[in-house]
Design a binder for these strands. Structure first.
Length: 814
DNA sequence: ATAGGGTTAG
């Protein structure tokens, strides 16, 4: 017998080493299936064999194999995890008639691959088994199905499932339980339910698989229903049931339910089980009860990393970021445990929220030293942290180096750009969607829409709107709210209203948004009207509602109503005014010209005045030509935001108007010293479906001559009064000295002029610009609207000016 | 001589 085997092994010369054997197997299996060719990375997981290992295997196979059971040897090799050796042995074995039809050894190989994460290879084995004419049995399928689960390949899984009916294993309890888990983990919970429904006999594992399956698909309620139904049928839950049910409570924030299960755990004596313990901590943390979590955590011993991680994550979730970071120390010093990848992932959001860049960086450094990177989840958390801390270059670097980008990491990078005002970069990244294998979700749109609001054209805004409506998110309230705002910011208040009117479910934010939309367009009457409607429909106004409403009153100059709402806010809704509300009221007071009151108002604010508050006073001073107060405001602003360019420009303009050229010069030097540059003014006009961009003095446009000619004709028609007005403000000396900045050639005028000649008569002209419109251009725009009888809409960095028949919606205060 | 269900994560 020994001789026979030797001979046969000698003749089997196609695979001389375990590595060869592996390659040969993969090739056979894949060629047969017309599937992809060898995945080199996967194969290399086996590692290469050194001579000693090789000899061990040969020794196992060659001397007197008949005296030992070869099968037993194969099992041992598989259990040791060295699949390459196992394959070598396996290939030798199936050369023998005794083994070729032995389902058992095939099962052992499939089991080995599955348990070592070699899912593709496990499925390959299963397929090859079919080609060799060996039938799979009730032991084969649970392994194969588990591998399909690991591959997350529905197609592969369904092929296997179909086969089960043919061979009559479709009702086997073990096989069905595996199928339930497979479908649930792939996100096809209905398929899992169907398998469960059709089982003639269900055991504890079947129930547990459903309970955990529902949790995996995010449906905690069904999971808990399953958990209770099982008990109603007389089935006693075990630790697996408890762990999954606790997960369901976490998912649904069901504290009461969670406590009940905690009691059950104690009654059943599972409280010493480490995983049960962790699940309990996690449940209390997710339900926002860190006090319960702490009490439980303090009592358990020994504590492992997972329990610590659950605590760190729980604190972060409860916005107790400092404690979250402190627990890292305690974990290292107290329990002498080393943080793992999940610890890092849990810590980073705390660093981000605390803007703790130093801590964030040290987490990054630790991750690198420990070799945790690349890791898609950790990298995403890093992108997020750097984004929150304003370190866009680092966020970009981490994102750029990611080997496995996915929807979530992509969303994180988008959000980082948008949060930091890098809208154009965000829009470019978003366009990348067409090259990505994943499709955008609610988070993507929620992130990108503000970028569209700030930087995109109305035309592009319409495109993204259409795109969203075609996706399954067309009725998502959260996203529709952003679309309403986007339309308003892109200048089309009508479209904003239409989207709002067609929403199926409006929430408070929807109302706040539409009220704000009318506010920035200076249509205060509509805001007020909508506020009443909102109350009639039973919505309770919140802080933001009043920010919208008070902004609207201020922008539209509805002073009395503004005060009335301000008082009613405290009186009728017990909302204490926040800094934003004070800002709106300051704008309102500024509009009346009562600067004394404005100063008193600031003094009486109980909160620390922000740059925005002083900005309101600066605007008020400017509109009331009070240079001293403007200087005071500017000092405050610059002490808070040294790089506030707008503040310099505004003050400089005031000096210029007053003819204080030395001060203008002084500010200019100061700006240079601070390394600041005046924002380059630019205006964009939308013509049919394209946009044209103009800077001051622009002569780059193809129709430049025509544009300037039209502007010239208009200016002459507008007449002397404007010219005189300009002269009083800009002295001839300055006009000569500083021709480039002459309002005559400001970008807004060029844009309006081009709009006039490129659009059909009667349609409004929409211009958006990045800085506040200057006083001269404002006067000119009013006049143009009068003589051309065209509506001109100019959206500047703060509000939209609707010029019509010689008047502006802002009533000359902005 | 082989089987199925479980904890922390963007």
């Amino acid at each position: 017998m020994a001789a026979t085997l030797s001979v046969q092994l000698t003749y089997f010369n196609n695979s001389n080493s375990p590595q060869d054997a592996w390659h040969k197997h993969v090739k056979t299996a894949r060629t047969n299936r017309n599937s992809r060719i060898v995945n080199k990375q996967k194969v290399s997981k086996f590692g290469s064999l050194n001579r000693t290992q090789l000899n061990t295997v040969k020794a196992l196979v060659e001397p007197e194999p008949s005296t030992r059971s070869l099968t037993r040897v194969l099992c041992n090799v598989v259990d040791s995890g060295c699949m390459e050796n196992a394959l070598y042995l396996f290939e030798k074995m199936i050369q023998l008639d005794t083994y070729i039809r032995n389902t058992y050894i095939w099962n052992v190989m499939i089991r080995g691959c599955t348990n070592n994460g070699l899912f593709r290879e496990a499925v390959d084995f299963y397929c090859r088994m079919g080609f060799e004419g060996v039938r799979g049995d009730n032991f084969t399928y649970p392994f194969v199905i588990k591998s399909c689960t690991g591959l997350l390949s529905l197609m592969e899984g369904q092929k296997v499932h179909a086969k089960l009916f043919k061979i009559g294993l479709d009702l086997d309890v073990y096989v069905c339980n595996s199928l339930i888990v497979m479908y649930a983990k792939m996100g096809y919970i209905e398929f899992a339910e169907r398998v469960f429904q059709e089982m003639p006999v269900r055991d504890l594992v079947s129930w547990n698989s459903m309970i955990s399956g529902y949790v995996a698909s995010g449906d905690g309620c069904s999971s808990l229903m399953c958990f209770y139904e099982m008990q109603a049928l007389g089935m006693k839950p075990d630790r697996f049931s408890m762990i999954s049910a606790l997960g369901a409570c976490s998912l649904e924030y069901r504290l009461h339910c969670g406590k009940e299960i905690h009691c059950q755990v104690l009654k059943c004596g599972f409280e010493l089980d480490v995983m049960v313990q962790t699940s309990i901590i996690d449940m209390y943390g997710k339900c926002g009860r860190m006090d319960y979590a702490e009490r439980f955590f303090d009592r358990i011993s020994p504590r492992n990393v997972v329990a610590w991680n659950a605590m760190i994550g729980g604190y972060a979730l409860s916005s107790r970021f400092l404690e979250s970071l402190a627990f890292l120390r305690k974990m290292q010093d107290g329990d002498k445990l080393n943080p793992d990848i999940i610890t890092m992932i849990n810590l980073l959001p705390s660093c981000a929220q605390l803007q703790a860049l130093l801590e964030g960086k040290s987490v990054h450094g630790y991750a690198i030293r420990k070799g945790f990177l690349p890791h898609p989840v950790l990298e995403t958390a890093l992108v997020d942290m750097y984004g929150e801390c304003g370190k866009l270059d680092m966020a970009e670097r981490v994102y750029g180096q990611m080997t496995e980008k996915n929807l979530i990491s992509w969303n994180a990078m988008l959000a980082a750009y948008v949060q930091n005002g890098w809208n154009n970069k965000a829009l470019v990244l978003f366009q990348d969607i067409w090259h990505q294998p994943f499709k955008p979700d609610a988070f993507t749109f929620a992130s990108i829409l503000p970028a569209y609001s700030e930087s995109a054209s109305l035309q592009e805004g319409k495109q993204i709107h259409g795109f969203i409506m075609k996706s399954e998110l067309g009725t998502n309230t959260f996203i529709l709210n952003s679309i309403v705002y986007m339309y308003a910011k892109c200048g089309d208040i009508g479209a904003a209203r239409e989207v709002f009117d067609h929403m199926l479910h409006r929430d408070v934010i929807s109302w706040n948004t539409i009220i704000m939309a009318y506010a920035i367009h200076g249509f205060g009457r509509f805001s007020v009207q909508l506020f009443s409607e909102m109350k009639e429909k039973g919505f309770k106004p919140n802080e933001s509602t009043f920010v919208s409403l008070l902004s609207s009153c201020s922008i539209s100059g509805m002073v009395e109503e503004g005060w009335e709402y301000y008082n009613s806010m405290k009186r009728d809704y017990s909302i204490d005014p926040g800094i934003e509300h004070y800002g709106c009221m300051l704008d309102l007071i500024g509009r009346t010209g009562n600067l004394e009151l404005a100063k008193i108002f600031i003094d009486e604010i109980s909160l620390f005045p922000t740059a925005r508050i002083w900005g309101s006073l600066l605007t008020a001073s400017r509109n009331n030509q009070n240079i001293e107060l403007a200087e005071l405001s500017a000092r405050h602003i610059l002490s808070l935001e040294h790089d506030n360019t707008g503040c310099y420009v505004l003050l400089s303009n005031m000096y210029a108007e007053a003819g204080r050229w030395e001060d203008v010069e002084r500010l200019k030097c100061l700006m240079i010293k601070e390394g600041l540059e005046k924002t380059k003014g630019c205006s964009v006009v939308e013509i049919n479906s394209r946009t044209c961009r103009f800077v001051n003095n622009d002569r780059s446009h193809a129709e430049t001559n025509l544009i300037y000619d039209v502007l010239d004709i208009i200016m002459r028609k507008i007449g002397e009064d404007i010219f005189v007005h300009s002269l009083t403000k800009f002295r001839p000396l300055d006009l000569r000295k500083n021709r480039a900045n002459s309002p005559q050639k400001h970008s807004v005028r060029l844009a309006i002029s081009f709009g006039l000649i490129s659009t059909t008569i009667g349609s409004p002209i929409l211009v958006r610009k990045n800085t506040r419109i200057c006083e001269d251009c404002h006067i000119v725009a009013k006049k143009i609207s009068e003589i051309t009888r065209r509506e001109i809409i100019v959206g500047d960095s703060k509000v939209f000016h609707h010029f019509r028949d010689g008047h502006c919606s802002c009533r000359d205060y902005w």
